[in-house]
């Protein structure tokens, strides 16, 4: 049975392997250069205290390949579900060959076991290797990425570590199950894609934020959590502050909610919104004529009691989250697999 499964699958496997080998070679050739570029850059910027500029410049240079490889890892599980999972059974049903193979000397359960097991394992191995390779390659970039593309950011998280393996296993089982229910290849592929995409959206939006209770913290305003800080000239109005989705001291944290609090603790602005700060601009540190610069004005604002209040998942939870999320997908995969075995014994013919 292993021979037959492999014989039917080897074309698709060879094609996928070829694509992945090309990707792996590209990553292996460029990875070390990327890494050394990062370490020399860091070494020099630490001395001149210009690391923020270095990060921006370094990430900007490699943004396109960074997005491209991340996209590959994000799409891979969906492709597995579409092209390996959905047609696995429907192709047999459409050609009637299930009647041929089910009447050889092996049980249907064994037939399905080998098919699911072999191809499922190949899919998992491929995505796992791919995910880890990309994680290794992009680690310098992940360290210098802006907060919306940091390691914990929804789009990037799913393209790193071992989670892609879980997605692939699930997508494959989903494709097979949908195929069994729908019995036609094209509708099965469409439905698989729709369900998988919906779940991949629901996961970071609805589930992942609650995998562990998020941390809530109140922070002084500083350069690291402000997107914008401006004082209108000539006293035309109060200074204006907009927060960015980052928390001081935990670069790369995944900020879930972000608010600017006034001295009484009332939220006056969310993330990205500008809010006027009630501080004297005619005299004191924030007066343009004071000539004291922005830094003292910020000290004054902090002294008055303006704070950032953020709910977030710290960066150090990256690997726990990877394991938990992979576990969830593994459970879903197990459920679908159980169902497909039940269905093939009871209903499918």
């Amino acid at each position: 049975m292993i021979w037959l499964t492999w014989r039917q699958f080897r074309g698709a496997a060879a094609m996928t392997a070829a694509v992945l080998v090309v990707l792996a070679v590209a990553l292996a050739l460029t990875g070390p250069g990327l890494s050394s570029g990062y370490s020399t850059g860091i070494a020099s910027c630490v001395q001149s205290d210009s690391c923020k500029n270095f990060y921006d410049q370094f990430f900007g240079t490699y943004q396109l390949p960074f997005l491209a490889v991340s996209l590959v890892v994000l799409l891979l599980p969906a492709l597995v579900g579409l092209f390996w999972g959905a047609p696995l059974i429907t192709r047999e049903l459409e050609a009637g060959t299930h009647l041929l193979v089910w009447n050889q000397g092996i049980t249907r359960a064994r037939w399905l076991t080998v098919k699911l097991g072999l191809i499922g394992l190949v899919a998992m191995a491929a995505t796992c290797l791919c995910g880890l390779a990309v994680t290794w390659w992009s680690s310098p970039l992940d360290k210098s990425a802006p907060e919306e593309l940091a390691l914990m950011a929804p789009l990037v998280f799913g393209a790193r570590g071992i989670a892609p393996m879980g997605y692939a296993a699930f997508a494959f089982a989903l494709g097979v199950t949908v195929g069994m229910l729908v019995r036609r290849t094209l509708p099965a592929m469409a439905l698989t894609l729709a369900v998988f995409a919906a779940l991949q959206l629901a996961m970071p939006l609805l589930v992942r934020p609650h995998l562990m209770p998020p941390v809530t913290g109140t922070f002084e305003l500083s350069e690291s959590n402000m997107d914008h800080f401006g004082i209108p000239r000539h006293g035309a109005g109060p200074p204006d502050i907009a927060l960015k989705d980052a928390v001081p001291g935990d670069a790369g944290a995944w900020v879930l909610s972000n608010e600017l609090l006034d001295p009484s603790g009332r939220p006056i602005a969310g993330a990205g919104q500008g809010a006027p700060i009630e501080v004297s601009t005619t005299s004191g540190p924030c007066a343009p004529s004071g000539g004291t610069g922005m830094d003292l004005c910020l000290v004054e604002i902090n002294r008055l009691g303006y704070r950032q209040q953020a709910t977030y998942q710290p960066l150090e939870r990256f690997w726990p989250f990877q394991w938990i999320e992979t576990g969830i997908y593994a459970l879903l995969t197990a459920g679908l697999t159980w169902f497909s075995f039940w269905w093939i014994r009871r209903r499918l013919s």
Binding site: A95, G96, T97, L99, N103
Partner: peptide, 17 residues
């Protein structure tokens, strides 16, 4: 399964094999 052979309607075979 070993005792019973079955040739299905339209005698399906694997086109690619």
């Amino acid at each position: 399964l070993a005792k019973v052979g079955f040739v299905a309607q339209d005698t399906p075979v694997y086109a690619g094999l």
